[in-house]
Amino acid sequence: MELSKENVRKIRGIILFAALVVACLWKYDLVISVLSYAFGVIFPFVLGGAMAFVLNVPMNFIERHLFPEEKKEKNKSMKKIARPVSLIIVLILVVSVISLVMFVLIPQLGRTFSSLGESIQAFIPKVQMWATDLFHNNKEIVAMVNNLEFDWNKVMQFAVNFFKKGAGSVLDSTILVARSIVSGMATFFIAFVFACYILLQKKKLNLQVKKVLFAFVPKGKAEAILEVCTLTYNTFSSFLTGQCVEAIILGSMFVVVMAILRLPYALLIGILIAFTALIPIFGAFIGCAVGTFLIFIESPFQALIFIIVFLVLQQIEGNLIYPRVVGGSVGLPSIWVLAAVSIGGNLMGIVGMLVFIPLVSVLYALFREVVYIKLMQQKIDPNEIK
């Protein structure tokens, strides 16, 4: 190989990269601590970016419907106030939802949990009677069931102790608690201000990012990167919007139908199913299992009615609501949805399930485009392949 200046430069780069990798592996604990510190520094801005991404979805919807492009082009003053007004409306809606949860839903759920404790205490003697009749020939099982006890106060104390252990040593010191609260508030405030800045200046920031990208990256690659970013944003925003709207509709349907049929814990189960419905494929069935158990404590017959209601509403949701609300926004075949949910759940839990479906959808769309380009280069029509 001829040692030209270009080859010498490549060899030098490979040697430096290899030396850097070896140094990182040798002092991996130091590298991890540095990365942790750096992530702690940029975390408020990462959180702010995530908040801006979520808030941008309803903000775009409000701005698009309240301030159409035709009106903004005719009225320059409307164009200036469109984005701030849309942001204020979104923030008012968010504060209203939080207030509704704090002052309406939480007290109602507190009363529901209180009655749930009483129902469980009344249910245990029934279980003991059923076990005595069913296993009267097996004294060990009867003795074990008769020793069942339920103390709601102990359950609540166990939950508090579990939270304390999960929170670590932070709760062991009042000073550390105060410091943690202040730090959390400061982080949230910085993230919130950063999110508002992004939302108010998103057009300007978008233009600046494009200028930087075209300045340092070849034009063809820069356009490809922008196309991937656009596809990623559209996929994630469509999936987020569809999942949230679909979960709200499904939870509301359960609350209304259960209230009409006078099934117990309608509000609690409706909220539970709305939250679990955010988990693709398996979420609603988790809510169904928990709801069936809660209602079974009150009445096994009503639990059977609830299962029938769940199956009917699931069919309505799956065949009518989900295709219209979410539709083909993700554009991912069912087998890959299942794979994305499984991989995301194993790697990152519930968050991974939500993130991996649009992420895999973007990769699927890009790979499909590459395959079509390769087929066209070989002068093969993709539609002719059967």
Rank of each mutant, 00 (worst) to 15 (best):
I350D: 01
G40L: 10
L105I: 15
E298W: 02
L16P: 04
N75D: 15
T241A: 09
S173W: 01
G270Q: 02
L226A: 00
F158G: 14
N138C: 03
E223Y: 05
K203V: 10
V127S: 02
G331D: 07
S180E: 07
F192N: 03
L226M: 08
G345V: 01
W152C: 06
F310P: 13
V362E: 03
K76M: 02
E118K: 10
M185V: 10
G283F: 02
I141R: 02
T235S: 05
L320K: 11
I307E: 02
I343Q: 00
P107D: 07
L176R: 09
N153F: 08
K27T: 07
I316Q: 12
G344N: 04
G291Q: 00
S361F: 03
A191S: 13
V309Q: 14
F17K: 05
I42G: 11
A131K: 01
L268I: 02
K221F: 08
A50N: 15
A122I: 06
N56L: 08
L304Q: 11
L30Y: 09
C196Q: 08
N234V: 03
P84I: 07
E73R: 12
N161C: 04
W26V: 10
L200P: 06
L30C: 07
E384L: 12
F236N: 01
N7C: 07
V177R: 02
V31F: 13
E149A: 14
D29Q: 09
I32A: 11
F162M: 12
Q314S: 15
I286F: 01
V170D: 04
V209W: 14
F356D: 02
S237G: 03
L207Q: 15
F301M: 14
V54N: 03
G287Y: 00
T276M: 04
K5R: 13
G328A: 14
L313W: 13
V90E: 04
Y372A: 07
S33K: 11
F285P: 00
S329R: 07
I297A: 03
L176T: 11
M1D: 13
I198G: 08
A19S: 14
F43G: 10
E223D: 10
A303N: 08
S361H: 04
F39H: 12
I357S: 00
G40H: 12
K154R: 15
G184W: 04
L347K: 04
R324S: 15
P264N: 03
L354V: 04
I260S: 08
G287D: 00
I260W: 11
L171W: 03
E149L: 06
F103H: 15
K386V: 13
L16R: 13
V104M: 10
L93E: 11
S86F: 01
Y233W: 10
F194I: 07
G110H: 12
I335G: 02
P333C: 07
E227R: 10
C288P: 00
I248T: 09
L87P: 05
F158N: 14
T112D: 12
E227F: 06
